[in-house]
Every structure is written in C-alpha cells, then in structure tokens.
Design a protein around this nucleic acid. Structure first.
Lengths: 155, 155
DNA sequence: CGCTTGCCTGGAGTGCACTCCAGGGTTCTA
DNA sequence: TAGAACCCTGGAGTGCACTCCAGGCAAGCG
C-alpha cells in the first residue's frame, strides 16, 4: 500500500474513522505507522507527535527501530479520537495517559476525570442544541418570506 | 462599573452569556466597549479584533471616536457567539458578515450557509453522542468493579 | 490641576495542535 | 542490486483565535 505522508483517511466521507475496519487478528497485529495513519485518519506526523508528548503508552519497535503498533494501540487511539472530539485539550489527555501508566491505584482519579468529561460533553450538546434552535429560526425566516430577520437587514 | 481589560464575564458560572440581561431600552442603547465585554463575555481586545477582521457591521463612534455599541450590535454578537460554539471558523463568520453587508440580494447564499452550518451542528451532536456512549461504558467499568477495562490495564 | 480610569491604534506575542523539513537509515519489488 | 517507497530524529514552521503592549488621547472627580 503506497501511502504518502499527507493527511486524512483514504475515504472522503467524513463519517468518522472506521472504528474496526481492516484490523488484523490479535497475535498478528503489527502495523506500520502509515497503516495506523490510514486506519485512524491521523497523520504519521501526528502519531509521532502523540508519542513525543506522552499520549501513547509506549509503542513497540521493530529490531531496526521502526514503530509497530498493535490492536491495543488502535483501541487507545480510538479512545483518544473520541476524547479529542469532545474538545478535551491534549494536555488533559496526556494527564489521563499518565494515570494509566501510573498503574491501578489511579482508578479513582481516572473515574473522576471521565466523569467530568462526561459532564462537559453533556453541556456541549446542550449548547449545540441551543445553537440549533437559533439556526432553525433564522433558516425559516429566510425560507419563508425571502425576508431576512430584522437583525440582518442592511441599514 | 470598573472593568479591567481581562477576560470573561463577571459571573463565574459558565452557563453561557446572559443573552438579554442588563440591556438598555432601544433608543437609549449606547454601550461602551467594556460594557459589551461584560455583557457578552468577550474581551474588549476581542471585540476590537472582530471589528478589524470585518466581523462587525460598522460600530458607531462617540464624537471623540470611542465605540458605542447598540442593541443591534449585541444581537449580532449573540449570533456570532452561537456560531462560534458550533466550531465555525472565524473566516466563515466573516464571510457571512460580508454577505449581510452586501445587501438583500445575498439571501440565498446566506440561507445556504446557514443550512450547511445546521448540518454540521447535527453531525457534531451525533459525534458527541457517540462519544458519550463510549464514556459511559468506561465510566461504568470503573464504577462497577473498580476494575478498569482491559485497554487500560498496565502491561 | 492632577490623578485615575478608560479608551484608542498598529503591531507584536501567545498557546494550541499540529505540520513540515533536513538529513539519513530501512524495506520491498523488479 | 538498484530504485522507489517507507521510516527515523530533532527542531523549526504554520494557522487559528485570540491576547497583550507601547504610546497616547479623553473623561470624571476631589
């Protein structure tokens, strides 16, 4: 598979990453960086950067030093992807990754973090629904009369 | 009202801007920049910047050149605020502002733009709901057994 | 009158999340 | 055994959305 180091998945429909497409069975799961890029929609650059900043749980290497990702890594990246689209800053995700690396005594803190994130997501959804209401109001103004709402009439 | 040029609204609860709080009646609606900052939650810096990049529909000035915002401006800023939290890039909002300035013959284009934005918002809400599902799954794992899901067990 | 506070401008600086580059080693295919 | 395609590193660059600064004018008050 020839994959140049540009951005994005091969597919053009932006319906999110395939989640579980084209995986190899556990045991035979050793993916190169560009394969992971194709599977996740992240660029190879970004994958290396995630590792540098401590957002990956130590990726395996081949005997010559090239990265070999596993299914577990893909799972992690899927989670990271989800968290990312909540708007969670990368720094917070790094914090979470640190907790995971730190071991089992950090359950409580991880729980708290996820709980807080959940609240953020709920708030965000509510915000968006408010916005949707405004948008719908405006759209119907335009659709109805071809007259824009007063706010937008030019002076 | 002494308002230093820092960020954010006076209130600490981040439940969004008050929308219609503390407005003066139409006709007596001339707000200074720091009043608008307090009302919208934007910084005075940001308000000036919005103007510079063409995101405001020509703000009125006092005889000495100071900005005097009207209720109409507040309405516009409320809309901008809504659009902003859909994740719409500022450049696109400027585009919209340009359409408004351009006059009534741009109804169709404005309609299209809002329609497209609406679709984006719907997609975004769906994404977030997907994320919520993942989050809930993980949270219940932590809550149930004190055992984290396999993905997060340290090697 | 002086003092504090607020406002003005153009331009420079910041933080985030990538994104790319130079210079070099590795792997696969013909 | 070439040659193309891929991968490595550290560090520099980019784009976005602000955010701040210097230097100066203006308004209210004791």
């Amino acid at each position: 598979m020839t994959v140049t180091e540009t951005t994005g998945p091969t597919t053009d429909t932006c319906a999110g990453p395939p989640e579980h497409g084209d995986r190899r069975p556990d045991g035979a799961d050793r993916y190169t960086i560009s394969e992971v890029a194709a599977l996740t929609g992240l660029s190879a650059h970004t994958l290396r950067w995630y590792e540098r900043i401590g957002l990956m749980p130590h990726v395996d290497r081949s005997h010559t030093g090239q990265r070999r990702y596993t299914n577990r890594d893909l799972d992690w990246l899927a989670l990271v992807g989800k968290l990312r689209l909540t708007g969670m800053p990368v720094a917070d995700m790094v914090r979470y990754a640190e907790l995971v690396r730190a071991g089992d005594h950090t359950y409580r803190e991880r729980y708290e973090l996820l709980k807080a994130t959940r609240e953020d997501v709920l708030a965000r959804i509510a915000e968006l629904q408010g916005t949707l209401a405004v948008l719908d109001r405006k759209i119907s103004f335009y659709a109805d009369a071809g007259q824009p709402p007063a706010l937008e009439r030019t002076r």
